[in-house]
Amino acid sequence: MLDLNTKKIKKNAYRVTKVRGETASRVRVPGGLLTAELLPLIQNIAETYGNGRIHLTTRQGFEIPGIKYTDMDAVNALLQPIIEKLNINQEIPGKGYTSAGTRNVSACIGSNTCPFATYNTTNFAKKMEQEIFPNDLHFKVAFTGCANDCIKTRMHDFGIIGMTEPQYEKERCMGCQACVKACKKKSVDALSVENYRIVRNTEKCVGCGECVINCPTRAWTRSPETYYRLVIMGRTGKRNPRLAEDFLVWATEDAIIKIVKNTYGFVNNYIDREAPGGKEHIGYIIDRTGFAEYKKWAMEGVELDPRTIVKGPVYWSGIHYD
């Protein structure tokens, strides 16, 4: 005789599945990077309490299906070392994940490995996770190292796309134009040549760093500061799937963290309390309140770098099925 509070279960990062009596445990891996020593622990849960299978989620977590609801406490005990190793904020030790609304903060492989990445996406994702998890509100945040956007940040509530501000030392340039060719063919064609030297169109430049990567003499180098493009309110879903639009360009880490945290206040204030499961995507709330109201909440107390461009009003398009 099972007597379950499904709402509590869901908040504990267990899924109510289609199989009667069986749940699935979602293991979050902020930034999508873990040490291999954790894999046997996940394997152990799947083989001891699950059905021996593990699903790799789109958000870079593990989902362990086929777990009996009655084994949740035992599974939570086995999750504990994983939670601790990954340094996940936890309200009650030993009780597993104490929220599931704010989803795993995902990241592309970033500058640990990828030659194109402009920053360490894993580190920023982990920092963001520390700031916003646990929370029951439905937030999706993703980090990507460059404008290629491999993690698809533009389908998230908050997408953080790395940017570097290319620095040009003209005396180190002999005019081979490797940067010009790369920018034209692989990026946005922001470079031109004047008197054998390179002129960067700062309006067009997306800070992808192709010029830096392709420069053979270090005439182009990266700015000491990393900048970010913050894109907001992309989503999938039934009614109006759409890509996120630019909010801040050339933004700093602190500004982005502050804006995401401010957004929790905005959502708390304006969420539809009657929404099914008390769950409503931020984007739909902004659609209701208008962008100006959201911006007022989001920018509260945010200190901007002089380079930062704030877009607005922001309009989204996407496909409307409603």
Partner: peptide, 15 residues
């Protein structure tokens, strides 16, 4: 050592 001056992010150049 030119810190962060390399082709890729967080790579130094010695020049």
């Amino acid at each position: 050592r030119f810190v962060g001056d390399g082709t890729f992010t967080d790579i130094d150049t010695i020049r």
